[in-house]
C-alpha cells in the first residue's frame, strides 16, 4: 500500500467513523445521561463532523492527516473526550511518520493508550475509555508481534477485545470521569467513552477490510 492509498484509507475511515457517530449519537447520549451529563453523543458527533470537513481540505501524509483529525477533535469536542481523543491522536500520529506498517501501527496504538492514561490519569478498571483501549491495544500488539498475524487479522481480534472491554465497564464502579460521582450507583451502566471507542475501531476494521 503506497502513501497515497494509505491517505485515502484514512479519509475513508474518518468518513465512516463520522457516519457511525451520527447514527449512534442518541445512544451515546443516553448512556451518558445515566451516569454523566448527557452530551457524549453530541460531543463526538460534532467533533467527527469537524474532523471530516478539515480532512476534506487537507492532503498529505498519513501522519499529517491523523494529526489534523486530532486537532479538529481538540478544538471541537470539548469536555473530557476532546483532549483525550484529540490530544492522543495528535501525539500518536508522530508514530506514523514513516507510513502505515505493521510496526508503526503497533507503536501508534501503544502511544495512543499511553497518552489517554496520562492525560486522564486513568488506569484500566476505572470504567473509562481506557477499558476499551487497553485490551484492544494489548491484543493487537500480541497478534502482530508474537503471533505474526497480518495487521488486518490482528485488528479483527482487537475489535473483539475492545468489545469485551466495553462489556467489562458495566459491572464495575467508576473511579474517573463524571460517573465516579455516583459511587456505587455507577455499577450496572456501560461507559459512553468506551462505547464510542469500540464504534471507531469497528469502522476502522470495516474500512480496512474493503
Amino acid at each position: 500500500m503506497d502513501r497515497e492509498t494509505q491517505s485515502e484509507a484514512i479519509h475513508e475511515a474518518v468518513e465512516a467513523m463520522a457516519d457511525r457517530l451520527a447514527e449512534e449519537k442518541e445512544h451515546l447520549t443516553d448512556l451518558d445521561s445515566a451516569i454523566g451529563d448527557a452530551d457524549h453523543g453530541a460531543n463526538m458527533n460534532r467533533g467527527f463532523q469537524a474532523a471530516l470537513e478539515r480532512l476534506e481540505e487537507t492532503d498529505g501524509d498519513p501522519a499529517e492527516l491523523v494529526k489534523t483529525a486530532g486537532v479538529a477533535l481538540v478544538s471541537e469536542v470539548g469536555g473530557a473526550a476532546g483532549p483525550l481523543y484529540g490530544g492522543s491522536l495528535m501525539k500518536a500520529s508522530q508514530e506514523l511518520e514513516d507510513g502505515i506498517t505493521a510496526e508503526t501501527t503497533v507503536a501508534f496504538a501503544e502511544r495512543y493508550l499511553e497518552t489517554v492514561e496520562e492525560r486522564g490519569k486513568a488506569s484500566v478498571g476505572d470504567k473509562t475509555m481506557v477499558d476499551a483501549i487497553t485490551p484492544a491495544v494489548h491484543t493487537y500488539k500480541k497478534a502482530v508481534e508474537v503471533d505474526d498475524h497480518d495487521p488486518l487479522e490482528a485488528l479483527g481480534k482487537a475489535v473483539d477485545a475492545a468489545e469485551r472491554g466495553v462489556a467489562f465497564t458495566t459491572p464495575i464502579r467508576a473511579k474517573k470521569g463524571r460517573a465516579s460521582y455516583l459511587g456505587w450507583r455507577s455499577v450496572g451502566h456501560q461507559d459512553p467513552g468506551a462505547t464510542s471507542t469500540l464504534y471507531l475501531l469497528e469502522e476502522l476494521l470495516a474500512v480496512a477490510t474493503e
Partner: peptide, 9 residues
C-alpha cells in the same frame, strides 16, 4: 463551551 461541555483548549 457547548452546553455542559468544557470549552476547547
Amino acid at each position: 463551551g457547548e452546553v455542559f461541555t468544557s470549552p476547547t483548549a
